[in-house]
Write a protein that binds this DNA or RNA. Structure first.
Lengths: 356, 356
DNA sequence: TTGTAAGCGTTATCAC
DNA sequence: GTGATAACGCTTACAA
């Protein structure tokens, strides 16, 4: 049984109207005026397209036009709230501009990344937005991709690659956090890091180091953790709590890390913020509902996504546009996880501040 | 300047080897044996493909083969942790099976859903996984899609559509929660719902109603809320706390709702769980770190994704396979947000239990 | 004002 | 064993 109601192609519609495919194509692509198609045929075509539920074959169109109107999005973990939000914004903006998005999850694994980049290449995406996994790995494949189509890096930079990139000011975020803590009388400020070797993490660590040094404070023995999970945060915080340096405050370079720190502190019978103050990175809906509500360094995730797409579209429009880099500002959201030691020093903190 | 290092197509590679495209195609698609290509040419082609970084044009291939090896994924909000996790699992499984995924966010809006379904249609996805927005809206478009390719519904059912579907047992989840509370001496059990009219929500509400009735408990005046946000949860919980029914426990039909309930309780000076016990739906990394740690009805999100893809692949393989429906079990994770009223009745709960 | 034909890069069929 | 050739459905010179 043949389905007579199957959505017709441009071609079949043309045939059924006794017109050539060319004419139909011209009308459908809005070129009716340019080709001086008669109003009558134009309307006939338009009307029929409407009623018949015509669906033009995008594959054929892409093949002919040499552009697919699709972009690739490669991120290390779609389920990570940061990347999920980023993906949402990018998809929405892309759709607004007529592009569809092929997503792939590199699983924070260079091998998988290479695999999906190859996939993006043979799917002929017009452009690519990538949060790269390593600092090096995929560069030869990426170079090949970038040679033929615009690519923009997001959240993570590849310093050696001359690609457009959009990141937020991780380094400044860490400085902001440290300054906030110092102002409130903290001096032994630890850092619980995420995945060393990734751009955002290393920038934040660098910012923490710089801010500490500028204030004349030591950082030796105050860096803990490896990985972005709750478990990693807990492990890092356990080490931190038992360390000889006896930090009074900690930066958690990711929100899940903060959760781990909270857990560890509770287990050890330390109060947050009285015994250990905490500033965490990346705001989440639940951050303000924790006890205590978390003081956060927040990055504008939706803006990152929007800008990434803007950068891509810019270069999709003018292929010779230079690859630009933009850095977006971050801000500190003060809530309740930082104790002011100047006002009423924490009772359970035995060691006095070493005056630098 | 011509880029001599541009990745060659099958065609150009054939030319440079002095072979026909047909031969190269046969070798690359693993048909060398079937066509009795000589080992020599086969190896020559394979070797050259390797070194030159050949990239076969997927568009042309799809056009010819009438299949794109891509599937569409339409969900109401990628940034929602539930759908993010679902998307991750679906993308990973799809990739393992050679499919790429075009995602689109319907923004919980029937109009947008219609738009993206049309997009999926003209992108010629081989199959579609959809978490539908309304109960009706897109059905004509969806019918058109489903007539030509397999579609599977996930998380949300369209009762009238005869499509494959995979959901978790929302109704039983609610029953589980109610039973858990009743066992612990609760009788006035409220429900803070999400988006009425969506499948998961309505099933959970129905489960709550059924379980209450079976236990001889009333539900009148105990249903609150509308929407899945923290704010909606807070508003619902405020009403709940001031209601004449004076509930001692609440089901929050979404984890963000639970956050809102927690906030409202705090504002009102009520303790959780002593004054108000809480069971929330859908586990999250932070749920166990809240104070109190949340008792949760958990659905197996990754399994949902995996099963959705399995169902799709099954019908991609045998187009005549009947559209099956599967329901996945949920479980209760007991943590600390439910107070046992039998042991030591909450001090601040003035009204005695109405014995049914 | 519209049609014809070539071509985008594959693969299947038929030929040799 | 391998090569022509046609076709997938569209767009765009070029013709008429």
């Amino acid at each position: 049984m043949l389905d007579v109601n199957a959505p017709p192609s441009l071609k079949s519609l043309a045939a059924s109207l006794g017109l050539s495919a060319a004419t139909v194509s011209r009308v459908l692509s809005g070129q009716a005026a340019r080709y001086r198609i008669s109003a009558a045929t134009r309307d006939r075509i338009l009307a029929r397209a409407e009623t018949s539920g015509l669906v033009v074959n995008h594959l054929a169109r892409s093949l002919r036009l040499q552009r697919t109107l699709s972009i690739g999005l490669v991120i290390p973990d779609i389920a990570n709230p940061f990347f999920a939000l980023l993906a949402r914004e990018i998809e929405r903006q892309a759709r607004r501009h007529g592009y569809s998005v092929i997503v792939a999850d590199s699983e924070e694994d260079p091998a998988v990344e290479a695999e999906v980049l190859a996939l993006m290449q043979n799917r002929h995406v017009d452009g690519l937005i990538l949060a790269p996994v390593g600092t090096s790995a995929a560069t030869t494949l990426l170079r090949a991709l970038a040679a033929t189509r615009p690519c923009v890096l997001v959240d993570r930079l590849l310093p050696q690659a001359k690609l457009a990139a959009i990141t937020s000011d991780h380094r400044h975020g860490a400085r902001l956090a440290v300054a906030h803590l110092i102002e409130r009388g903290h001096a032994r400020i630890a850092c619980v890091q995420g995945h060393p070797g990734t751009f955002a993490n290393d920038e934040r660590v660098a910012g923490w180091r710089a801010a500490m040094r500028r204030a004349g404070l030591a950082t030796a023995g105050l860096l803990f953790g490896a990985g972005y999970s709750i478990a990693a945060g807990r492990d890092g915080a356990r080490a931190l709590l038992e360390s000889p340096a006896q930090p009074t405050a900690a930066l958690a370079l990711g929100n899940l890390l903060a959760l781990g720190v909270l857990q560890a502190a509770r287990e050890a019978g330390r109060r947050v913020p009285e015994d250990l103050s905490l500033v965490a990175f990346d705001d989440q809906p639940w951050a303000g509902v924790m006890t205590p509500p978390l003081t956060i360094i927040d990055q504008p995730i939706a803006d990152l996504g929007r800008e990434a797409l803007a950068l891509l579209l810019e270069r999709l429009g003018r292929r010779d546009a230079p690859p630009r880099r933009r850095t977006l500002p971050v801000r500190l959201i003060e809530r309740g996880s930082v104790h002011d030691r100047r006002a009423r020093p924490a009772a359970s903190s035995p060691t006095p501040d070493p005056t630098p």
